[in-house]
Design a protein around this nucleic acid. Sequence first.
DNA 1: GCAAAAGTGTTAATCTTACACCCATGC
DNA 2: GCATGGGTGTAAGATTAACACTTTTGC
Lengths: 244, 244
Amino acid sequence: MPKRLLLKNAEIEKATHSEYFNIGLSVDCVIFGYEDKQLKVLLIESDLEEFRGMYSLLGDLVRPSEDLDEAPYRVLIDRTGLKDVYLEQVHTFGGLNRHPSGRVVTTAYYSLIDVQHHELQITEHEVHWHAVNDIKNLAFDHKLILDTCLARLRQQVMEEPIVFNLLQEKFSLRQLQDLYEAILGIELDRRNFRKRITLKNWLVDLNEMEEDVPHRPGKLYKLRTQLRREYRMSDKQRMQKLVV
Amino acid sequence: MPKRLLLKNAEIEKATHSEYFNIGLSVDCVIFGYEDKQLKVLLIESDLEEFRGMYSLLGDLVRPSEDLDEAPYRVLIDRTGLKDVYLEQVHTFGGLNRHPSGRVVTTAYYSLIDVQHHELQITEHEVHWHAVNDIKNLAFDHKLILDTCLARLRQQVMEEPIVFNLLQEKFSLRQLQDLYEAILGIELDRRNFRKRITLKNWLVDLNEMEEDVPHRPGKLYKLRTQLRREYRMSDKQRMQKLVV
DNA sequence: GCAAAAGTGTTAATCTTACACCCATGC
DNA sequence: GCATGGGTGTAAGATTAACACTTTTGC
């Protein structure tokens, strides 16, 4: 007899499977910043004995009454004081033994923030910026998570104007190029770079110049206002916009 | 006093947060197939009262002792009898009220299978192929999941030789082009299509001809063996290969 | 005047697109 | 012999890659 013909309601379904509601769910944030011409990521010294002396990403368990996509915002606000950050879900890691506390599945997000943002406050003194290139290993499977997010960032950066979240509002083309080079890990031709950026029509010429540079100052630009609005949003918010 | 300086061990950490281990985790599979020049997806009539008469994706709760990435394989084997399928994790959906049974977060995968595979057996008679283009709505948030997976498939298809998982081993260029058109929803120029495919060097000419076609038969090709090995693997397996 | 970086254009190569005719087969 | 799709090449346009010199400023 095909049991599927008997409709169940959701309450019965839940009771039947209650033993399955026994997996922890967390989010981990790869918070990228840009400083000293290097791509950096915010890490905290692990507070677990098992990973003494190692660093880990910033994350937290998802609360039972919070949307999955809200959790990384909470983490960002708690750890950096910043809201309205750019956030993108990347991948969910669910290996059986990835966490010593038991079964914890984690959804990884990456975030781009301006390290000079006036509201940025990293209060905990165990939290620091680390150059991505210098990171050899991390607690848990966080090195894999970092690598996955970095690969995704590199891919996205070629297509959409998201890197501006890593810069202050005003920047020169040289600063922008340095940033692309830091993210992609390659050198770019200056003329071709400027041509491509111009073609994309992302920028507004501010008719201002750099100041206090020990050489000929460059022009300052900013991201077009409409794009800045669009690409400071998370992918979730963009997705909702698509639906409307 | 900064509490973070007191190292916790994992056991204490778990005890502290036990109330958080109260979220269900499931996987949902968007199983794509190709038949009658249409992209199809495998759906089941919902067995929940709340969604009576609606269809939903094939999914299941993740077992406490199973890797997240193994769960969709189990679903595939249970529902289709197929193993070694192409599977790719796409996105995790964790809205608060997405499931009437309570808090269930789901990780969506898409899969590509050959509807003519000799081992394919869809035993449950509530499970059927549906043309993707005809699907207007689904139970839960499954329409959103389907759309997200379709968008990802369209993107991947342009870059990597994965569509061959939807075809039998031998195929003509016409069949291949029809498939691309079905997935992308656009028409392609035959000459340019053949040129691009030739350039990519994905195919081996089998020196065989189509049979039983009511017109001039086309040549048959297959995917190069090495690529077939690589791209029948899931992204998890490919990722592991990268690490080695 | 020298060091440092800004700013700028052209050419060759590659890739993409659009497009039309003859050919082989089944009926 | 006719209907159906198989098979093929070329030219124009767009994109990308490589490459060097002059200008402006701070010191």
